[in-house]
Structures are given as C-alpha cells and as structure tokens.
Amino acid sequence: MPGTEAGQPRTAEETAKRLCTCVIAHVQNDEERAHAQAALDNALKTNDAHAVLIACMQLMQPCPARDEPVTR
C-alpha cells in the first residue's frame, strides 16, 4: 500500500550501499517498483500464476536492505 513503506533510503548513495540479498530481490527504487508492478499486471492479465508469485514477492515487505528494522 502506498505510504506504508518503512524507512526508505533518503539518497541514491544510501540505496547503493544497502543491496538486497534476499532470494527474490525486492525493489529498491521507484523505477524498479514500476517494472515489478507492470510485470504483476501482465501476469494477472495472462493468468501466469508463477509470474504473479514472483512479482508479489518482489513487491512484498520487509526487505532488510531496503527497510529499517522495526522495534516493537
């Protein structure tokens, strides 16, 4: 959901330092988010269940490289 992203890096330099090491690489910036969203939209239109799963995993949170840890 828009506005629910936690602790987005403030600069491109911060983003470059914090690369995603997850098995499925999460989006790291707005351009990658747009590509993953377009891939998800296409997968839904073509009924490609595997592509839907991959795109959803790319868009999911949290990613330790992208998101600040949340303490509760």
Rank of each mutant, 00 (worst) to 15 (best):
Q37G: 03
C63W: 04
A38Q: 13
R10I: 01
N29D: 09
L59I: 10
A65S: 14
Q28V: 00
L40T: 02
T15Q: 01
H26K: 07
A55M: 06
T4V: 11
E32K: 00
V27A: 04
G7Q: 05
N47Q: 12
D67Q: 12
A43Y: 04
E14G: 01
L19S: 11
A65G: 15
P9L: 08
M1I: 09
Q28L: 03
P64Q: 11
A38H: 09
R33P: 02
K45N: 12
M60E: 13
C63N: 12
H35C: 13
G3N: 07
A34M: 10
T71W: 15
A65K: 01
T21A: 11
Q37K: 07
Q28G: 02
T4D: 12
P69D: 11
Q61S: 15
V27E: 02
Q28T: 01
V23L: 09
K45V: 08
N29A: 03
Q37S: 05
N29S: 04
A34Q: 09
E5R: 08
A65V: 05
T4A: 12
P62C: 08
Q61N: 14
V52T: 06
M60V: 08
V52L: 07
A38G: 09
H35G: 10
P69L: 09
A65Q: 04
D67M: 09
A43T: 09
H50G: 13
K45A: 15
N47S: 12
H26N: 08
A39T: 08
N29M: 03
P69M: 08
L59K: 02
A34D: 10
M57V: 07
A55G: 03
K45W: 12
P9E: 08
I24T: 09
V70E: 12
Q58Y: 01
T15V: 06
M57P: 01
Q28I: 00
D30I: 04
A6Q: 15
R10E: 05
V23T: 14
V27I: 10
T15Y: 00
E5N: 08
E68D: 12
L53H: 14
L19C: 11
T4H: 11
A36E: 02
A49T: 12
C56N: 15
N42E: 15
P62S: 09
C63H: 06
D30C: 05
Q37E: 12
E14N: 02
A49W: 10
A39G: 09
A39S: 13
T11Y: 03
M57H: 10
R72A: 15
K45D: 14
M60N: 14
D48V: 03
A36N: 04
Q8M: 04
P64W: 04
A25H: 13
C20Q: 03
A39P: 02
